[in-house]
């Protein structure tokens, strides 16, 4: 691929999703865009680049962006964040929100749905403590394709074996041919919506907990800062932000501070209730 075409595709992906494609990612770009070019009846990436330059077709630009997003995910990924949510964050929120009995959780860049469904199963397991509570899990992604898969809740044998405890699989899944489908009662707990993290997020409303894990790693520094700043505006002042193991707010955004002793969890730098727990 010539450098002009690489620049063209890289600019499209960066301006529309924030994902930064460095020169060493040229193989990734080729492996993901060649199938897209073929689906559209083109022989090469040069043809695809030419098509983009000529027509700037909105749908094609979206497809290019979606093809470059990474959708690696699995149930209860890394375990520990879910333990912290269940053992530290949730008990505190059940205490501080006991008057309004309402909890809002946002799963940003949810990919194919394993993370929001993990949270939904976890909350279902804790249902005895939450009688009469209104719980909303909002899950968003930039890709319509992964959102459709999320909504269907259908997973392969390989996918259900990565991170999902067998007891939960027996309890919340049905076998559909060679696939496994998550129970409708769990699917109903999650609302899926297309959302680009670079857009204004304020219309999503305020959240008590935000899972934004393994997303920032794909952004450059200014984009990380911008996204975190937006996230801060829609998280409750005593809420909890969960980031991925390789991600941090330090040196990027002063609005959040780490929750001491709870790796990967952040709270508002001012009034962060969780910080008091140590």
């Amino acid at each position: 691929m010539n450098s002009q075409d690489f620049q063209l595709f890289g600019d499209i992906v960066r301006t529309r999703s924030g994902l930064v494609l460095t020169e060493e990612k040229v193989y990734l770009l080729e492996s993901r865009l060649v199938p897209l070019a073929r689906r559209r009846g083109m022989d090469s990436l040069e043809d695809l680049a030419e098509e983009v330059r000529r027509h700037r077709d909105e749908r094609l630009l979206s497809e290019i962006t979606e093809a470059m997003t990474t959708n690696e995910t699995f149930f209860f990924r890394d375990n520990k964040p879910f333990d912290i949510f269940r053992e530290v964050v949730l008990p505190q929120l059940l205490e501080t929100r006991r008057a309004q009995k309402s909890l809002r959780i946002w799963n940003a860049a949810c990919s194919t749905g394993q993370e929001p469904y993990s949270l939904a199963m976890l909350l279902k397991e804790e249902a005895a403590k939450m009688a009469g509570w209104r719980v909303e899990i909002m899950a968003t992604d930039i890709s319509d394709e992964v959102l459709e898969k999320s909504k269907a809740g259908l997973y392969s044998q390989f996918e259900v074996q990565r991170g999902l405890p067998i007891q939960l699989m027996v309890k919340y899944f049905q076998q559909v041919g060679e696939m496994w489908q998550i129970d409708s009662s769990i699917r109903a707990m999650v609302k899926f919506q297309n959302k680009n993290l670079l857009e204004d997020l304020s219309n999503l409303g305020k959240f008590d907990v935000i899972f934004c894990r393994n997303v920032l790693i794909y952004f450059d520094q200014p984009t990380k800062s911008k996204v975190l700043s937006q996230v801060h505006k829609i998280i409750a002042s005593d809420g909890a932000l969960f980031l991925g193991g390789a991600e941090t707010v330090l040196g990027i955004c002063d609005d959040f501070k780490p929750v001491e002793g709870q790796r990967g969890v952040y709270t508002s730098a001012i009034n962060g209730m969780l910080a008091k727990t140590g």
Binding site: F74, F76, N79, Q157, F158, Q161, R162, G163, P165
Partner: peptide, 16 residues
């Protein structure tokens, strides 16, 4: 574990 398995599945289940 439902066969066929691979390293990722073994690691995930043993970790769980």
């Amino acid at each position: 574990i439902m066969k066929p398995f691979d390293r990722a599945i073994i690691e995930a289940k043993f970790s769980q």
